[in-house]
């Protein structure tokens, strides 16, 4: 079976004034279907850039990226959008909920873009609201929710299209211990159900729970541990 994600010599450079920042510098990485990888490393080392690259939010300066064995860098904007919509779910440190929309509307957003009809949207959203115990908050706007509730809404939004991959960029970075714990439970449960999970974290304890850990320093993978 071919790996779900395969990066060969991926580089991402930014031109900042005169300087050329190598956010990613020749990354080779393979992740199997259903895998669970923690990405560790100091701040500014390129972890988010790596995640954005895998999530097709960013295009590499060099190298090739095979998703399910298919080259992605040549895909058009429309095609990449479709891949993001159908196969990838993002969870961010700062939740990134649309402030004027209710919890339910935020969860329905990807289905709205996919053109899924309202009854099905409602059913799917209801199921997730129940699963994540936020049914009573369905019509609340994000500013009326606690951090933990917001992140659960964001996870519901990331999973509502039943993606193959969840990309979580410091998902507990903005939460207290107990809320962080709860969010980790939900995310790891998704992985146990077969979703490939890649998670950026600063917390070595959390990193140790993953099946494999990589450490990035200055855009390069310096360590790769497998359990």
């Amino acid at each position: 079976m071919s790996p779900i994600i395969q990066l060969n010599g991926i580089a991402r450079h930014f031109q900042v004034g005169e300087q050329r920042v190598k956010a990613l510098d020749h990354i080779d990485l393979t992740i199997e279907q259903g895998g669970y990888m923690a990405v560790m490393g100091p701040s500014g080392s390129g972890k988010s850039t790596l995640l954005n690259m895998i999530g097709l939010l960013d295009r590499p300066t060099a190298g090739e990226y095979l998703l399910n064995g298919h080259e992605t860098t040549a895909l058009s904007d429309d095609e990449q959008a479709t891949v993001r919509r159908e196969q990838i779910g993002f969870v961010f440190q700062f939740f990134h909920l649309v402030p004027r929309l209710s919890a339910r509307e935020n969860i329905e957003l990807p289905m709205l873009l996919a053109g899924i009809d309202p009854t099905e949207r409602h059913q799917r959203a209801n199921k997730l609201l129940t699963d994540y115990r936020i049914t009573d908050r369905a019509d609340h706007r994000p500013d009326q929710l606690s951090g933990g509730q917001r992140q659960r809404v964001a996870i519901a939004r990331a999973t509502v299209m039943q993606p193959k991959i969840i990309l979580a960029d410091e998902p507990t970075g903005n939460l207290d211990r107990s809320n962080g714990h709860e969010v980790m439970e939900i995310i790891e449960q998704l992985n146990r159900e077969g979703i490939t999970l890649i998670m950026v974290t600063h917390d070595p304890e959390l990193g140790a729970r993953a099946h494999e850990q990589i450490r990035i320093v200055d855009g390069q993978i310096t360590e790769h541990l497998r359990r």
């Binding site: 999530g55 429309d78 919509r85 649309v98 957003l109 873009l113």
Partner: peptide, 16 residues
């Protein structure tokens, strides 16, 4: 901007 970025992350194309 944040909303637009998010829309793209959850699968909106530039055309959308």
């Amino acid at each position: 901007r944040g909303e637009i970025g998010l829309l793209k992350a959850v699968g909106a194309s530039s055309r959308q």
